Amino acid sequence: MTPSILPDKNWLMDHVPARVSDLAQQSSFEEFEPSVENPDRFSVSCPFICAYLETRSGRQLTASSTTTYEQNLSQYAAFLQDREVHLLDADLTDVIEFVEHCVDQGNRRSTIESKLTTVRELYVFIRLRTAAAEALTIDPIELERIDLAEYNVPPPIEREALTQEELRKLFDAMNSYRNRLLAVVAVETGLRNSDLRNIRVSDVDFDSGEIHVHNPKNSVPYDVPISRDLRIELQIWCDQYRDGYAPRVDSQYLFPACNGAKLETNGGLNTIIRSAAERAGIQEVLATSEVPPGQGKHSEANNNVREWHRVTVHTLRHTCFTLMKEAGVPLPYRQLVANHRDPQTTQHYSHGRGQEFASIREQFDPPR
């Protein structure tokens, strides 16, 4: 039988300093482990990982980000378990071998960066917020020494912006007014997937023509401008159509789901966009990659392969800033809407707020 990634009590007595061993002797090993309020909430069984996810979920991570972190850590835990290495006993070499395992699986650099960041944050959590701090073999700071540039990984997937003709085809292929309006808002504002799904009715300022992004990814709240046409469309949507999409739910969200307060996952919204692109004849598969065990729900072709599509919600964000650039909107203004502090980041998307927003509206005329 493959051992648990958590050490048993005998191992603990042999490997940790006296202070921690004394703690374990004074109480049961279960008390030494971090407390988890909802142990069945996550698929992974490790109490340290569950406690870490439970601490960050909601406060710092959206539901979809929590799922990604859980998948990353489940893969790391399974990797250690296969090698009979305990979570607390893993060292820098073990993490490097995990990175090399990801490279062998065909993961791209951004994917490996995400996994490595999650593993590092897990060990920081254990060191700073659990009684097992002194039982750790690894120093989380050591993980910053891993240079992913040294590895030969597949090139990043480059999604081209959609043309205005392709956008109109996409809008026409939407199978509901709500879905069409979601796509229009995505192209006009450049909001990320989770930010689109989390727009509340109260976030829309119909007087000033702005949408307040109240809980953005890794950032402070900010505002984006919307055109007069979109303002009118959203007003009509709220007054005449929105309530019909969630008759049994008292939803605060601008775009409620048919059976819930909102679209709950990034995958749900991506499916809407991806399927409409297929109907419009503008979708294509850019690449495929292996899906690790336990993540088959993310594959399209079969249980072992994930297809990377050209048209996704992220494509619409990329299209927004490309169209802004083509319309002559200056980089600082595009940076403002993209909520990017580094102009170099906003530049990648383009292969005193009131005045800036007015200028953007004057120059940027999004397609309908």
Rank of each mutant, 00 (worst) to 15 (best):
L167S: 06
L167I: 10
L167N: 08
R168W: 06
R168H: 12
R168T: 14
R168I: 10
K169Q: 15
K169S: 15
K169W: 06
L170P: 09
F171Y: 13
F171W: 04
D172R: 08
D172M: 00
A173G: 14
A173N: 13
A173Q: 12
A173I: 07
A173P: 14
A173F: 05
A173M: 06
M174P: 03
M174H: 06
M174K: 00
N175G: 01
N175S: 03
N175H: 03
S176H: 07
S176A: 11
S176N: 12
Y177M: 04
Y177I: 03
Y177G: 06
Y177N: 09
Y177T: 13
Y177E: 15
R178H: 08
R178Q: 12
N179V: 00
N179L: 00
N179M: 01
R180Q: 15
R180H: 10
R180K: 14
R180M: 14
L181P: 10
L181M: 09
L181N: 12
L181V: 09
L181T: 11
L182Y: 00
L182N: 01
L182W: 00
L182Q: 14
L182H: 00
A183M: 06
V184W: 06
V184S: 02
V184G: 01
V185S: 12
V185F: 04
A186P: 10
A186N: 11
A186C: 14
V187W: 08
V187T: 14
V187F: 05
V187R: 05
V187E: 13
V187Q: 10
E188F: 03
T189G: 11
T189V: 09
T189Y: 07
T189P: 13
T189H: 04
T189I: 08
G190D: 07
G190F: 04
G190R: 00
L191P: 12
L191E: 11
L191A: 14
R192K: 07
N193L: 04
N193E: 02
N193D: 02
N193P: 01
N193C: 03
N193R: 05
N193S: 03
N193Q: 03
N193H: 04
N193M: 01
S194C: 10
S194A: 12
S194K: 02
D195V: 01
D195H: 02
D195K: 00
D195P: 01
L196Y: 04
L196H: 06
L196F: 05
L196K: 04
L196A: 11
R197G: 13
R197P: 14
R197D: 10
R197H: 12
N198G: 04
N198F: 03
I199C: 11
I199V: 12
I199Q: 13
I199M: 11
I199L: 09
R200Y: 07
R200P: 07
R200T: 06
R200W: 03
V201G: 08
V201H: 01
V201Q: 10
V201F: 02
S202V: 13
